[in-house]
């Protein structure tokens, strides 16, 4: 099973890469057929990615969500899934062109990590692991989509009338609305993730909140998006300002995920 997972992982990497290249060609050539092929490749990649994760889970005899490699590949899967849902729901392939490179970067980061299957240390042997990490994946994926939509918004903001961006990207109001919905989904799941993490931490470490760096940065991320939602209401910070805020929020997400494990001491550093 683990051997199959390795093969599938390479295939997924190749499919995501091919999809990304085709999306770029689509942007350059403006040919809808190319975009359609890119979407098909990305969906195929996502399907194989799902199988790969299941294979690793069967091979390891546990949920494959416990070290940097496993979480990175799951993060890429979550981002790809949420972006495909939004892409198909709102029918604009340009979203794929911007999410595919991020998915590829994250799975590329996963490829650089140690892929060895290790037995779980006692602290990780908990049913809460599945709830905690899977909610984090959906939250991060949703924030990633909000980030992509915000970048698109900023590009759309500068696009001239009748240009490619004007014709192939939904209007700014819609982009802003979809980005907002993506943030609300992310915030809901991040809250879920923090609560399940706290319940688990109480059982495993004897304290549901101990100001560990990962906890602190999850809180920072939560506060940034909470401020984003309040600013939208209070100051009417929609559109461009909200888009910039969503970009900052995703920077916090990335720091919480990679930065904390790399630069700061944390009990959450499972390699």
């Amino acid at each position: 099973m683990l051997q199959l997972e390795k093969i599938l992982f390479i295939a997924v990497l190749a499919l995501y890469f091919a999809a990304m290249i085709l999306y770029f060609i689509y942007i350059a050539s403006k040919k809808e057929t190319v975009a359609k092929i890119a979407i098909v490749l990305q969906i195929a990649g996502l399907a194989l990615h799902t199988v790969a994760i299941v294979c690793r889970g069967i091979g390891a005899g546990r949920l494959p969500l416990t070290n940097q490699y496993e979480f990175a590949t799951a993060f890429a899967w979550g981002l790809c899934l949420v972006s495909m849902i939004f892409l198909l729901r709102f029918r604009f392939p340009v979203l794929g062109a911007f999410s595919a490179p991020i998915v590829f970067l994250i799975i590329g980061y996963a490829a650089l990590q140690n892929k060895q299957v290790n037995e779980l240390m006692p602290a990780l042997q908990s049913n809460w692991l599945g709830f905690h990490v899977s909610t984090a994946i959906i939250a991060y994926g949703s924030f990633g989509v909000a980030f992509v939509l915000s970048i698109l918004f900023l590009l759309r903001d500068r696009a001239q009338e009748g240009s490619f961006w004007d014709r192939h990207v939904p209007d700014k109001e819609k982009l802003d609305l979809i980005s907002y919905r993506s943030v609300t989904l992310g915030l809901l799941f991040l809250t879920f993730c923090i609560i399940t993490g706290a319940i688990w931490a109480e059982r495993a470490w004897g304290s549901y909140w101990s100001w560990d760096q990962k906890e602190v940065w999850s809180l920072v991320t939560w506060l940034v998006y909470a401020a984003y939602l309040h600013l939208r209401i209070r100051r009417g910070w929609r559109g461009k300002a909200a888009a910039i805020f969503a970009v900052i929020g995703f920077a916090c997400v990335i720091f919480t995920y990679i930065g904390v494990n790399t630069f700061l001491p944390s009990v959450h550093s499972y390699r």
Binding site: V216, L219, V220, L223, V224, A226, H230, R235
Partner: peptide, 18 residues
């Protein structure tokens, strides 16, 4: 407005302390 200021202060305090 005060809520947003407090959220920003909490963010800065947490990030700085980390």
């Amino acid at each position: 407005t005060f809520a947003i200021i407090l959220l920003a202060l909490l963010c800065a305090a947490c990030a700085g302390a980390s």
